[in-house]
Amino acid sequence: MPGGDSGMAERAPDPAGPIGSVTTEPLWVRRILIAIAIAFLGLFLLMPLVAVFFEALRGGWAAYRASFDDPDARAAIALTLTVASIAVPMNLVFGVAAAWAIAKFEFRGKSLLVTLIDLPFSVSPVVAGLVFVLLFGAQGLVGPWLREHGVQVIFALPGIVLATVFVTFPFIARELIPLMQDQGRADEEAATTLGASGWRTFWSVTLPNVKWALLYGVLLCNARAMGEFGAVAVVSGHIRGQTNTMPLHVEILYNEYNLVGAFAMASLLAGLALVTLAIKSFLEWRFGGSIASAPAH
């Protein structure tokens, strides 16, 4: 284990320190800026969140509960859980492998690889879905061949999983890479020199050092996987009870003017988002520097 310097994030210096008065703004300026920031965030971020729960409960608790008795709603929840339980582990294994190669070794083309990992962030979710339709659809490049062999990808589970994996591809890798780069490879080299095998080094040295960042990456990846809409909308075909994920079911109910049903389903996803953010804040507060501070986008 390292000497004990891994840990708490440095707190920003207190602006009210002895020389603080020349490096901060007058109190009234600070108050106005804080007020503008909070008002802006309240209007753009908080209000929509409150609206979800308000609209979901508008018809009362019984109506809210009843909206989950619909078999289509249950099928959508089950499908979303299935998709996330396949997509997240896939990206988890990739994220760990990519971070190990990038953080622990020097090789040519590394920065290109990092850029390519970020690529899915700059691709519209709709385009991500389209790409798989062009490959596996009825008129796609390999779609007809797959169909002859009885494999359906588009309008079925494999297509939804592929689209979800594409869209959530970078999340775990991005959480791990900067942190593992910061930590360097001295710990691992020490373990290897002392005779630990590669796996033993990874499980006993690397993993404990990055576990909280890994957990947050998995949570964020999971929230995005369960909530993905555009890419999945393109590949799913919207077959009720079969290829409808939770966000797609929200859309269908909303378009049918079943607002309580739509917002009830949406409230589950909003709750998931809140839990994700709460755990992230807790981890940052508790473990500070062992969560990567790089922008998670």
Partner: peptide, 9 residues
């Protein structure tokens, strides 16, 4: 929040 909240929601 916008990272974690599904876009449809």
């Amino acid at each position: 929040l916008p990272f974690a909240l599904p876009t449809a929601v």
